[in-house]
Amino acid sequence: MYRVRVIKSFSAAHNLREYEGDCENLHGHNWRVEAYLAGEELDNIGMLVDFKVLKKRLKDVLDELDHQYINDLDYFKSVNPTSENMCRYIYMKLKETFGGMVERVVVWESDNSAAEYFEQ
């Protein structure tokens, strides 16, 4: 099995609905996102996927979130913008391009707090 990973960052604001605590208030993060693709076969030049292609697609997805108030985005109007739900959102967007190769997405909201999404 082969695995590749890229890391990109974005900055945005959100607030957690129905949360009893400080995070219910408007606040922001500098999120760091790790995207993992995996597969058993390499292409004819020995790559699972070109890093350039994966970085570009992840950048496109994160550009939708960057410097936004996440709660105002269509998807997050009905889905609470937790780090867990942002993982799933990014995962599904990457899956549109890379299909079953998407293994997992990790979203770090701080240096010591991260959430992951993957399908079994």
Rank of each mutant, 00 (worst) to 15 (best):
Y36L: 07
F51T: 07
G28K: 00
H29E: 12
L54E: 03
W31D: 08
N71I: 00
R57K: 08
N71H: 03
L37V: 10
I70C: 00
A35R: 03
D43I: 08
K52N: 12
D22W: 04
D60M: 11
V53Q: 09
L37M: 10
Q68H: 03
L48C: 12
D60G: 05
A38P: 10
L58I: 01
L26F: 14
A38W: 13
F51V: 10
D50L: 13
V49K: 12
L54S: 03
H27K: 09
Q68L: 06
R32S: 09
R32P: 01
L58S: 02
Y36G: 10
L65P: 00
Y69M: 14
N44Q: 13
D43Q: 11
L48S: 08
F51Y: 15
F51E: 05
V33R: 00
R32D: 13
N25S: 04
E34W: 11
L26I: 12
L54T: 09
E64Q: 05
D63T: 02
Y36S: 09
Q68S: 11
I45S: 06
D50T: 09
L42P: 11
G46R: 03
N44S: 12
C23Y: 02
E40T: 15
L62Y: 07
L65G: 00
G46I: 08
A35L: 01
R57C: 10
L54G: 01
V53T: 13
I70Q: 01
A35S: 10
D43Y: 11
L42W: 13
K59H: 11
N71V: 02
G28C: 07
D60N: 10
D60C: 02
E34A: 09
L26G: 10
L26S: 06
L42Y: 11
L58Y: 03
M47T: 11
L37A: 09
H29W: 14
D43S: 08
H29D: 14
L58K: 00
L65V: 02
D63C: 00
L54F: 11
N25F: 12
H67C: 01
A35F: 04
D43G: 08
V53C: 09
Y69W: 12
G39R: 07
F51C: 07
D66V: 03
G28R: 01
L65D: 01
V61F: 05
G21I: 04
G39W: 04
L37C: 07
R57V: 01
G46H: 01
E34N: 04
E24S: 13
E24V: 08
V61S: 09
K55V: 05
I70S: 00
L58R: 07
E41W: 13
I45Q: 02
D72H: 06
K55N: 07
E34P: 06
D66F: 00
N44E: 14
I70M: 05
D43N: 15
G28E: 00
K55R: 10
W31G: 00
A35E: 03
K52P: 06
I70Y: 00
V61L: 05
D22C: 05
K52A: 11
W31M: 08
D43V: 10
D66P: 01
E24D: 08
E41N: 15
R32E: 15
L58C: 03
N30K: 12
D60H: 04
E34S: 05
Q68V: 05
